[in-house]
């Protein structure tokens, strides 16, 4: 937990014991239906100070999107306190909308059948941004995200990567204090992902925009965030820096070795075999103790190595482990 809280740095986001329950009607047989109460968010508390970059991760159904929606005014909490930019989202939706920018992977901020540039112009009127400020921000985004080639293209004809860059621009044209991104890199190619990450890092560094990012992709968080919130089953199970997470989890990776033929467990320092299936062996090793390169070199020197791959820990595994270990 960050302990650099000072009176001059305010909390952009403040969430205290927030809960959200949904009532779902589930079918029971042919006609009857039963009422099921789902605790999507079950008492979450955290704060985000201005200028932070925070990652918000968890498995599917953990409550990530629900929390985001409550922070941005889309959903009204069942109970608890939510303050974004010093406003109560459920009551001051319109005022809050001026101060935040939100990017969804699944929903579009743009006008589908109009050229991208027209969307930006419409947003200028919607947010009532003074023309010079708008032009300046648009110019900056155009340059950093390389929008020029497709500014005149209708949004429905854009590739996913192009569209996401457009969405990001759309969310920032009114100069929000807080940028919230919900799964922004889903489906993007590697190059587009890198561009987006760089852009967000610079946005935070140069403009001081607070960034809150949910993602399934741990590497997004690694590249971008200095703080990580992990949520599982509606509860917060980790709140701290990434280093803290790595230390806690131990930074374990798995090296998958394919030998030319089945053989006895590979014996190599720094790694332990935890599974064998014919010629394939899975070796676990810790980041702190050795590197993949070193292991591969040693294994290749002593064993008939045919192929190999590396498995990174899945976010679900990390979360599960943390949850099992206890918060």
């Amino acid at each position: 937990m960050s302990d650099t809280v000072s009176s001059t740095v305010r909390d952009i986001v403040r969430v205290e014991d927030v809960r959200k329950t949904f009532t779902v009607w589930r079918k029971r047989g042919r006609v009857r239906r039963e009422r099921v109460v789902v605790d999507a968010v079950d008492g979450i508390t955290f704060s985000i100070a201005a200028g932070e970059t925070v990652g918000y991760v968890g498995p599917n159904g953990a409550g990530k999107s629900t929390t985001i929606k409550m922070l941005t005014g889309i959903l009204v909490p069942t109970s608890g306190l939510v303050r974004t930019c010093d406003l109560e989202p459920s009551r001051e939706r319109v005022e809050l909308a001026r101060r935040i920018g939100v990017v969804f992977g699944q929903r579009s901020l743009l006008w589908w059948d109009l050229p991208l540039a027209d969307s930006f112009d419409l947003l200028r009127h919607i947010y009532r941004v003074p023309a010079p400020a708008h032009a300046a921000r648009l110019a900056e985004c155009t340059e950093l995200l390389e929008l020029d080639p497709f500014l005149a293209t209708p949004v429905r004809q854009l590739s996913l990567g192009q569209r996401m860059r457009g969405e990001m621009t759309a969310a920032l044209l009114h100069g929000p204090e807080l940028l919230v991104l919900d799964e922004p890199t889903v489906g993007l190619d590697v190059v587009s992902k890198a561009k987006v990450r760089t852009f967000l890092r610079d946005l935070n560094a140069q403009h001081g925009t607070t960034v809150l990012l949910t993602s399934h992709d741990l590497s997004d968080i690694e590249h971008l965030c200095n703080r990580l919130l992990i949520v599982d089953h509606g509860r917060l199970v980790h709140d701290g820096s990434l280093d803290a997470l790595r230390d806690r989890y131990g930074g374990e990776r798995t090296l998958v070795i394919d030998l030319t033929e089945p053989g006895p467990p590979i014996d190599v320092a720094g790694a332990t075999v935890h599974r064998i299936d014919g010629p394939r062996q899975w070796l676990r090793f810790r980041r702190a103790e050795t590197t993949a390169a070193a292991l591969v070199a040693e294994i290749a020197a002593r064993y008939p190595l045919r192929d190999l791959s590396i498995e990174e820990p899945a976010i679900e595994d990390i979360v599960h482990r943390i949850y099992v270990d206890g918060a």
Partner: peptide, 9 residues
């Protein structure tokens, strides 16, 4: 949701 994110009724 997008309608709710804009500062317009």
């Amino acid at each position: 949701d997008v309608v709710l994110l804009r500062p317009v009724p």
